[in-house]
C-alpha cells in the first residue's frame, strides 16, 4: 500500500465518524461541506474532520481511494457512506438513525433551528 493510501486509511480509521471536508466545522469553506456539518450537528453526532484544503495530496487521494469524485466525503466505522446528497437524503428519510444505531453510535436530535 502506498504511503498516501496508508495515510488516508489511517485517517479514516482515526474515529468512528470521519468527515473529509473543505474547511473546518467552525469555518466550512464550501456549501456542501457546511450542509454536512449542519446535519451531523443536528443529530448530535460526534465526528472528526479533515480539512482537505490543507493537504492537496489528501484532497485528490481521497477521491481515488473511494472512487468518488467530490468532497465532502463521510465515513462511518471506515465504511464510505457518501457525500452531501446521500447524507441529506438519509437525514430526510431517517436512514441516518438506522446507520448510527447499527454502528452503536450515540446521537441526540437537537431541535434548535438549523
Amino acid at each position: 500500500m502506498t504511503d498516501l493510501k496508508k495515510k488516508i486509511s489511517d485517517l479514516i480509521s482515526s474515529d468512528d465518524v470521519v468527515l473529509f471536508m473543505k474547511g473546518t466545522p467552525d469555518f466550512p469553506q464550501c456549501g456542501f461541506s457546511a450542509n454536512v456539518i449542519g446535519i451531523l450537528n443536528y443529530f448530535g453526532v460526534k465526528f472528526s474532520s479533515i480539512n482537505v484544503l490543507e493537504d492537496n495530496e489528501i484532497r485528490e487521494g481521497i477521491k481515488e481511494f473511494s472512487d468518488w469524485p467530490t468532497i465532502p466525503q463521510i465515513y462511518v466505522k471506515r465504511e464510505f457512506i457518501g457525500g452531501c446528497d446521500i447524507l441529506r437524503e438519509m437525514a430526510e428519510n431517517g436512514e441516518i438513525i438506522q446507520l448510527l444505531e447499527k454502528n452503536n453510535l450515540p446521537y441526540k436530535i437537537t431541535d434548535q433551528a438549523q
Binding site: K63, D67, W68, P69, T70, G82, G83, D85, I86
Partner: peptide, 17 residues
C-alpha cells in the same frame, strides 16, 4: 445510493469537479 451515484459520476467523467 453510493453505487447509483457512482454510475452517474462515471457518466460525467472528468468533468466532475
Amino acid at each position: 445510493k453510493v453505487q447509483q451515484h457512482k454510475i452517474v459520476y462515471d457518466a460525467i467523467g472528468h468533468h466532475m469537479g
